[in-house]
Simulated scan of single mutants.
Amino acid sequence: MIVSAVKRIPVTEPVWKDLSEMRSAGQTYAELLSDIIEERKKRRLEEDAKIWESRPDSEFVPLSGIKN
């Protein structure tokens, strides 16, 4: 269940203008910020995956080699 709460986030006038221009018709600022956050999370995950993919296999331990 999502509980709605009114919070204020101070932003500069240029940031407010940029956010306003990014909104789609009928989109709330909460929806816009949620979309921006999700995109950022996806980008971070993609960047982390690229880092892990670039590591040599010798840095990894097989699961069978891990003791509880």
Rank of each mutant, 00 (worst) to 15 (best):
V3I: 05
G65S: 13
Y29Q: 06
R40W: 05
K42A: 08
M1D: 04
S64L: 06
F60R: 00
E13N: 09
V15Q: 12
K67N: 12
S20A: 10
P56D: 10
Q27C: 05
M22Q: 15
G26H: 00
L32W: 05
E38A: 06
P10I: 03
M1V: 09
V11I: 08
V3C: 09
P62L: 10
I66G: 00
A25F: 08
V3W: 05
G65A: 13
E39N: 13
E53F: 07
I9T: 13
E38G: 01
K41H: 08
D35W: 07
W52L: 15
K50A: 14
K17H: 13
Q27R: 01
N68L: 14
L32A: 01
V11T: 08
A49N: 07
R44Y: 09
R40K: 12
S54E: 07
P62K: 00
K7R: 14
E13S: 04
W52H: 14
K50C: 00
S20N: 14
R23M: 06
P62N: 13
L33Q: 03
E59Y: 04
K67E: 08
D18G: 09
F60Y: 13
V6I: 04
E39S: 14
M1G: 11
E31K: 00
P14A: 08
K42H: 03
R43L: 15
L63C: 06
Y29N: 01
W16K: 14
S34G: 05
K41I: 12
T28W: 06
E38V: 03
P62H: 12
D35G: 06
T28K: 09
